[in-house]
Design a protein around this nucleic acid. Structure first.
Lengths: 145, 145
DNA sequence: GCAATATGATTAACATGTTAAATATAAACG
DNA sequence: CGTTTATATTTAACATGTTAATCATATTGC
């Protein structure tokens, strides 16, 4: 392949990652539709349920969102009483966000369905391959460049 | 793990795919900034350069875009003379989109930089693992569910 | 031929992605 | 102490993601 030609799109990593994600999300979206929150809002709630209260910067990092997106998402979640937000006690620049009981309830109600979907996906794809894929993705994500 | 608990976000496939993609795109974005088109516009041009003229439905499929997004993207590309659009000769519902010389020039000018980035990524991650990852992603994307 | 249905594409509405600029508070430093 | 610099968050502007509705043209079945 000359350096002037591009590889086939089928072997382009960004597109391959997108396509795989699309297949996975197609399975998950019906469940999300039931929750009443978007995929991203769901991710934020999950992160907060998993790790407790934290500031927007950490939430963004853990939920794979950029801060401007997160600002809007937190606004929605707060207006719907799924999270609370208060100033950091000692650092006036920072905020502390916590999930509410209502938010936790939303997670708990939908966790079984989410796990069911995941189990089917793993069964269909193969546990071994799934773990191998997750390992490779994790390694790629943490690649030092 | 109880069915009421969710897996750790670090082992959640949608998030793992996102994080890996973010690492890859961080390498590619500076190049894209030089091209003057967005990531999605670049994908559309690549697909058209690779496979020739086709209708929006096929472009959307190959470039991993939804039709409403593609409609706006084609509008931009056409306004900037990077693609042309005409009616299908026999089917009035369909359009045929083709890349222009200007569009092809944009691709050609940036292909070497793109390939350079990809080569570095592959060198750092390992050719074998890269191919294994692409294979797994392709298999996942085509999973029958 | 014509009504019913299907298909290709666009539009609408709202949420998010992305980059740059703005705002507010802290920390550093002379 | 006040000025500069750094950090946390938000706002702004524009592009895209997502679902539902709409519009135009084709196809089907009667």
């Amino acid at each position: 392949m000359s350096d002037k030609d591009l590889r086939a799109t089928s072997r382009a990593l960004p597109i391959a990652l997108l396509r795989a994600r699309e297949t996975v999300m197609a399975q998950i979206r019906p469940m999300l539709a039931d929750t009443g929150v978007t995929e991203q809002q769901w991710r934020v709630l999950r992160v907060l349920a998993e790790d407790g209260g934290m500031d927007p910067t950490d939430i963004a990092e853990k939920s794979c969102l950029l801060l401007p997106s997160l600002t809007r998402i937190l606004k929605f979640l707060e207006e719907n009483a799924l999270v609370t937000r208060k100033r950091h006690e000692t650092d006036g620049r920072r905020h502390v966000v916590e999930i509410t009981d209502k938010g936790r309830g939303l997670i708990d109600r939908n966790a079984p369905a989410s796990n069911r979907i995941y189990a089917e996906l793993e069964k269909s794809f193969g546990t071994k391959k799934m773990n191998r894929l997750l390992d490779l993705l994790d390694e790629l994500a943490h690649l030092k460049l």
